[in-house]
């Protein structure tokens, strides 16, 4: 196990360098950050030259990347367009997005697994067909459409919840955005649980558990569910990184000042430190989530052993 973890961590290094360099390259090579700082006005040449020197923009791209990475490892992510340190933006944005992601994951787990178990146990019945079609519809409707429609219905028409989220983003206000963010993944969790449950209902250990007279509830929860949830858990684990990255649309609809909002601002203003910094953290979260999922997999399924 230890050797496996070390090898996976080593494998993460080139991936981390590659993806951050790719983003770095795109942000720096394609736009002029100095011009972007000045908006519509033309910068004073001397000031522009000074800024270029301060930001190391005259160095080669490789050198710039090295300088940037060295700063990151000393905790210096640079400054955003408004002079705030990127780290302080992160400090305010990440807690919000993490809360939003957690709300979404709770929806996925509770509703997705419940629907999956119900349909998996009643395969081919009307409930099953109905839910399956519903998941297809949910997967097909883009997040920004469901977002606006649900915001209109629950926030504007019924007034059950605030249509947009206040800057402090308490969990109560994040319920609707969390549901919107979760919906597509929720449909996948339902389908995955359904397939997994349906496959395992015919397993020997389920028959044994029924034969020795266990009540149905116990068979389902202790025997069937426990074994069927392994792929679901891995899916949810990897999905956390995706949800944090995908929150950009949801955050825009509900005016949530999280990671997506800051990134969007950074991109609009061509502020490389904000964009590269946030994306670097997201890539890290994604890589670590993947690693944890693989390790979790071995814990959940004792048949898998890592050399």
């Amino acid at each position: 196990m230890g050797r496996y973890v070390i090898r996976r961590l080593l494998q993460m290094i080139p991936v981390f360098i590659g993806s951050t360099f790719l983003i770095f390259f795109m942000v720096y090579a394609l736009g002029d950050p100095v011009a972007a700082l000045f908006g519509d006005r033309a910068p004073d040449p001397a000031t522009a030259a000074q800024i270029r020197r301060d930001l190391h923009l005259n160095d080669s791209l490789g050198e710039q990347y090295l300088i940037y990475m060295r700063n990151i490892f000393t905790g210096d992510f640079g400054t955003a367009f408004n002079g705030q340190a990127v780290t302080s933006l992160m400090g305010s944005a990440f807690p919000v997005t993490i809360r939003l992601t957690l709300v979404a994951v709770v929806f996925e787990v509770v509703i997705g697994i419940a629907l999956g178990v119900v349909t998996g146990l009643r395969r081919g019945r009307p409930v099953d067909t109905g839910v399956l079609l519903l998941t297809l519809v949910v997967i097909s409707v883009p997040t920004f459409v469901t977002g606006y429609v649900l915001q209109y219905i629950f926030g504007v028409r019924l007034r059950w919840t605030a249509p947009s989220v206040s800057p402090s983003a308490p969990v109560g206000e994040l319920l609707l955005p969390g549901l919107v963010l979760a919906l597509v993944s929720l449909a996948y969790v339902t389908r995955l649980t359904r397939t997994s449950i349906a496959e395992n209902t015919r397993a020997d250990y389920v028959r044994t558990a029924v034969a020795k007279g266990l009540p149905q509830r116990r068979v389902i929860v202790r025997h069937l569910l426990r074994n069927s949830l392994i792929p679901v858990v891995t899916f949810i684990g990897t999905d956390i990184g995706a949800l944090m990255g995908g929150a950009i649309v949801t955050e825009r609809i509900f005016n949530i000042h999280g990671v997506g909002f800051q990134l969007y601002q950074g991109i609009l203003r061509n502020n490389a430190p904000t964009v590269v910094g946030f994306v670097t953290i997201l890539v890290l979260v994604f890589l670590i989530a993947n690693l944890l999922v693989d390790l979790l997999y071995a814990v959940l399924d004792p048949r898998i052993r890592y050399a």
Binding site: T234, F235, D239, A242, G245, I248, V293, Y297
Partner: peptide, 12 residues
């Protein structure tokens, strides 16, 4: 069982 890595970038 681990093609889910594929899902992540897309958000949805």
């Amino acid at each position: 069982v681990d093609p889910h890595q594929a899902v992540a970038p897309a958000g949805g």
